[in-house]
Design a protein around this nucleic acid. Structure first.
Lengths: 336, 336
DNA sequence: GTGAAAGCGCTAACAT
DNA sequence: ATGTTAGCGCTTTCAC
C-alpha cells in the first residue's frame, strides 16, 4: 500500500497534523521535529494523496483541452504551448480529441466536470449552443482559442484573422497578380472560415479586383479535400495565377494539384498559405505563409484561464496576438 | 456550489445511502424511490465527485502519456490512438511533453503518482536508470512504446525496427542501387537508433555491399539536422545514389538538401523514409517509406496497460505490430 | 429495502 | 508548538 500521512506520523513519532504542517507551513514546526518528519517522508517516499487534498481544496490543478485533431500540426503546436505553460504552474492537462463530434465534446465536458478539472481550453471547434449551455451550467471557467463566438461573451485568444488574410492577399496583388482565387474553410465552421474570406474580399476590393470575389472554393480540413477544391477552382477559373489558401495544408494541396496538372509553383502559379506550420519550411517549394504565434497562443490561453480561475473574470475579454507574413518560395511576381 | 449527494438525498426525501445505491446498484432500490432519486439527480444536474470516489476506489480512471514532442507527427499519431482507446474505456489521458529532459520526466512521474494516475505510457524516450527506479518504486503500471529497454523486462509495444529497416534498404538494392547511404538517429538515443542501423547493415551484407556500411551520418531529430547530415554524407561519399533515412522528416531533409544542390529526386537520387507520417504523401515527391501502424500502436499500448492494471501482469511482454513498405515517388531504378 | 455510521487521506479549526 | 477532532463527498458495512 501507498504510505499515508499516518505512516509518516507514526514513523516520526508525531501526530498527523504535525506532518501536515511540515508540508504546508514548515516554519510553524520546531526544527527538530520538522527534521524527523522530513526524514520519515523521504524514507517512506511519501506523497500526499491528491484526492484527499482535492476534496478539501476543491481543485485538481488540472485542466482539459479540447481540440479537433491532435494530428493537425496547428493544434499540436498549440498544445505544446499549453502544456508547457501548464507545467510551469504545476498543472496537468487532460487532452480531449473531439474529432469535431458534438456528443464527444459534451461527454468530455461532463467528464472533466466530474474529475473536478479547474478549467477548460476550447480550441477551434465551433461552440454550439448545447455545449455552451453545458459549459455555463458546469460553471467551469473556460477560454476559447481560435474560435470566435461573438454571440457569447466568452474570453478568447486568437489572431486577427481578417487582417492577416487581407495582408496575405495584398502580397499577391503587390506581386502583380490580378486573377486570384481562394481555398477556404467552410464559412460557418470555425473562425478560420468567415474572417479569412472577409480579408480576402477586402484586399480584392481595395485593389479594384472585385471580379475575383467569387473565385472561392471550400475544403473541409485535409490535404485531399484541398486537392479536390483546387481542381474545382481551376475548372471554374482557369485564368487564375495566384491562390490564397486558408491553411498551409490547403496550400500544399493546391501545389500538389498544380504540379500534377503541369502548373509549376511559383513560376506559373503563386500560392500563399496560412499558419506557418513546421512543415511549411520543409515543403518544396518552401511556403509563403502567414505565421501565427501558435505556441504563444497556447501559453496565453493558459494564463488567461488562470486569471479567470483566480479572479473570476478577465481583464481583456478578447485577446489578439500578432501575426506576420513570411515570404518564402511559393509566391513570385507575375510573368507576362 | 456544486450539488452533493446530500442535496440529492434531501430533494428526493431519502438518505444518502439510497442515492448512492441508485447510482451503483439501482436494482436494490424500490422503483418508486429510484424514480424520485433519478429525478432529483437530473434536476440538480448532480454528478458524483471523482475525488470522493477516488478516495474510496483508489483509482482515478486516468493515465499519463510521456512523449518527447507532440509536434512530431509520429507522436501525434500515437497520441491519437491512445486517446481514442482511452476514451473508449472512459479513461482520461494526461499529456506530458518531456522534450527529452530527464528532470522533467521525473517530475511528471511524481506528479502522476500524486494525482493517483492508474498507469503510464512511456513513449520513445530512452528509459534511464533513475527513471526506471522511480517508476518501479511508484508501483505504477507502465508500458513502453517504441522504446526498447531489454535490460529491464518492462511490457512494450513496437514494430520490428531492424527488419523494417532491412526491407527498406532491400528495396533500394532491388532497384539496382549499389552505393547507398543512411541518415540515422544517434545509436544510443532511442529504439530508432541501433535497430534501424542494424537493419541497414544486414541488407547491405546480404547483397555483398559491405563497403557501404560506413556511409552513415547521424542527425538529432529535426529536419534541419537531417539537411546538415545529408551535407556531410554527400561530402564523404559523393558516389551515393540512394539514401535510407531513419524517419520521414529526415527523408525530407535529404531531399531538400539534394534539391538545393542540383540533385533531383528520384531521378538522380532515391530516398526511402520511415514512419509514413501524414506528410509523407503530401510531400513532393511523395515519399517511399515504411509504414508504422502508429494509431494501432497507441491503441494496443492502452490495452496492454489496462491488462497490466487489471491482472497485475501481461500475457505477452513484448508485442510487435506489423509494418509495411509503401513505394511512392521518392525512389526509382538506378539509371546507368 | 433503507438509514445510520464508519472510514478513505487529508486540512483546519480548536484545544491545550 | 502540537495534538485532537470535525469534515470534505462518497461507498459500504451493519442494524433494523
Amino acid at each position: 500500500m501507498k504510505p499515508t500521512i499516518r505512516d509518516v506520523a507514526k514513523l516520526a513519532g508525531v501526530s498527523i497534523s504535525t506532518v501536515s504542517r511540515v508540508m504546508n507551513a514548515p516554519e510553524t514546526v520546531v526544527p527538530e521535529k520538522r527534521q524527523r518528519v522530513q526524514e520519515a517522508i523521504e524514507r517512506l517516499r511519501y506523497k500526499p494523496n491528491a484526492f484527499a487534498r482535492g476534496l478539501i481544496y476543491k481543485k485538481s490543478d488540472t485542466f482539459g483541452v479540447m481540440i479537433p485533431d491532435i494530428e493537425n500540426p496547428y493544434y499540436a503546436g498549440l498544445l505544446r504551448g499549453i502544456q508547457d505553460a501548464a507545467a510551469e504552474m504545476n498543472h496537468s492537462v487532460i487532452i480531449c480529441n473531439t474529432d469535431r463530434d458534438r456528443s464527444r465534446m459534451l461527454a468530455y465536458v461532463r467528464n472533466l466536470f466530474e474529475k473536478q478539472a479547474d478549467g477548460i481550453i476550447f480550441a477551434s471547434d465551433s461552440l454550439h449552443r448545447e455545449l455552451y449551455d453545458e459549459l455555463k451550467r458546469s460553471r467551469l471557467p473556460f477560454v476559447l482559442v481560435s474560435t470566435d463566438a461573438p454571440e457569447y461573451d466568452a474570453p478568447s485568444v486568437d489572431i486577427d484573422n481578417e487582417q492577416a488574410a487581407c495582408e496575405a492577399v495584398r502580397h499577391l496583388i503587390e506581386l502583380g497578380h490580378r486573377e486570384i482565387g481562394m481555398i477556404g474553410f467552410p464559412v460557418g465552421n470555425t473562425i478560420s472560415g468567415a474572417p479569412r474570406l472577409a480579408g480576402f474580399r477586402r484586399a480584392l476590393a481595395e485593389a479594384g479586383l472585385d471580379h475575383c470575389a467569387s473565385h472561392v472554393e471550400f475544403a473541409a480540413h485535409r490535404f485531399e479535400d484541398a486537392c479536390e477544391a483546387a481542381g474545382r477552382l481551376f475548372v471554374r477559373a482557369p485564368q487564375i495565377t495566384a491562390v490564397f489558401a486558408a491553411s498551409d495544408e490547403f496550400a500544399m494541396g493546391v501545389i500538389a494539384y498544380a504540379r500534377d496538372h503541369g502548373r509549376s509553383v511559383p513560376d506559373q502559379l503563386s500560392v500563399v498559405g496560412f499558419d506557418d506550420i513546421r512543415m511549411a519550411r520543409m515543403f518544396i517549394p518552401r511556403l509563403t505563409t502567414v505565421e501565427q504565434p501558435v505556441y504563444q497562443i497556447g501559453v496565453r490561453a493558459v494564463h488567461k484561464l488562470h486569471e479567470l480561475m483566480v479572479n473570476g473574470e478577465v481583464s481583456v475579454l478578447h485577446e489578439r496576438l500578432p501575426h506576420r507574413l513570411i515570404v518564402r518560395e511559393s509566391t513570385a511576381g507575375l510573368r507576362v
